[in-house]
Write a protein that binds this DNA or RNA. Structure first.
Length: 320
RNA sequence: GGGAGCGUUCCCGAGCGGCCAAAGGGGGCAGACUGUAAAUCUGUUGUCACUGACUUCGGUGGUCCGAAUCCACCCGCUCCCA
């Protein structure tokens, strides 16, 4: 059933779908429905659902959902383990291969734009860098770091704001570690042949306030579902990435004494995050956007989105 | 009833006679992003016919060439004494 279209360079690329959008926009429900209709399996594209034990705060699909439709790349490491975008790319590639081999349609679903991009990219030319390089660079004053970058990789320096120390360091460590500027590595990745035939479906709202209201409501639900205890009881060593998780980091930062205050912080952080996700995805011209609050919104509109998305995917991927 | 304060742009909050459409932070909006990405960073945020004009700092009326800043009264809030 999964008849791949031959792309213009003559290679057969596996077909995949992707459902993206800001947090709380209804991606999971849409992906589930698409999976049911099209014989698909879901590949989570979420930097935090990777972590075991962080269930409520990352809005993982329920056990029932996971029993009905196979979900990949959820619960793959403990919060103590460092996990990167590059790791994700490798595992996503395996998942697609696996799902495709079984004649089913891989459906990416998630809000981590960088992870999705890295998974869909043809090749990723970013070598491993000795972490010691970053460590020593981090000790230098920001101005000096930017000066250095200006010298060894002016193209990246021009693209990165000097205040964005984290990215200045990344660009610098790539040059120090490989002798080749980051801008050059990036160019090679960008120019590489795509890995899949992908159809991307995006979810957004005409009225931003509606999205924000959904976010607030969902945070309240998470609290009711026991997020506080989940955060309190996470096993101690937690890696840098997992430490940043919204819904948990606020407890670590503000403590467990004033729960209502922390809840407000979680809502605010989530809203800001949703805005950043939208900024990321809106830049991608390949995404077909659907509006959750179109017309009357609600179940009727959801059905309509599912229908349109299904047609779109079938047409574009030539999947029956 | 007496005393001491306070009221600033969406919010908090600085300003205390001109350099103030008014610091800073938050929020909003927009943007960047290729191995920390639920991270990190940038721009913008009174109105308009926008290198200029107009309206704004609780209200009204004054002083002054000139007020968010000084004075009077009024309204509202807070705190202290009774």
């Amino acid at each position: 059933m999964n008849e791949n279209i031959t792309d213009n360079s003559g290679r057969d690329l596996p077909a995949v779908a992707a459902v993206v959008g800001p947090t709380a926009s209804g991606k999971s429900a849409l992906a589930m429905e698409l999976a049911r209709r099209m014989g698909g399996e879901i590949i989570s594209c979420d930097s935090m659902q990777i972590y075991k034990g962080m269930d409520i705060g990352t809005a993982k699909p329920t056990a029932a959902e996971r029993a009905e439709i196979p979900h990949h790349l959820i619960d793959i490491v403990t919060p103590a383990e460092e996990f990167s975008c590059a790791d994700y790319r490798v595992l996503a590639g395996q998942a697609v291969e696996d799902i495709t081999a079984r004649g089913r349609l891989p459906i990416f679903c998630g809000g981590t734009g960088l992870y999705l991009d890295s998974a869909l990219e043809g090749e990723r030319f970013s070598p491993d860098i000795d972490p010691e390089v970053r460590r020593s660079l981090s000790k230098l004053p920001p101005d000096e770091l930017y000066e250095k970058l200006l010298e060894c990789d002016p193209e990246s320096a021009a693209a990165i704001h000097k205040n964005n120390v984290r990215r200045v360091i990344r660009a610098l460590e790539i040059f120090v570690g490989t002798g080749i500027p980051k801008s050059e590595w990036d160019r090679r990745s960008r120019e590489s042949q795509k890995r899949y035939r992908a159809v991307k479906i995006g979810l957004d709202f005409h009225d931003r306030a509606k999205l924000y209201a959904r976010i607030d409501a969902r945070v309240d639900e998470m609290i009711a579902a026991g997020l506080v205890d989940e955060a309190r009881n996470l096993p101690d060593p937690i890696c840098k990435t997992a430490q940043q998780a919204i819904g948990y980091s606020e407890f670590w930062r503000y403590g467990f004494d004033d729960i209502p205050f922390v809840v407000e912080r979680i809502k605010q952080d989530t809203r800001n995050y949703a805005k950043r996700q939208l900024t990321w995805f809106r830049r991608d011209p390949e995404i077909h956007w659907f509006y959750v609050d179109e017309g009357e919104g609600g179940a009727e509109n959801f059905k309509n989105i599912v229908n349109c998305a299904t047609e779109l995917i079938r047409a574009a991927l030539n999947v029956i």
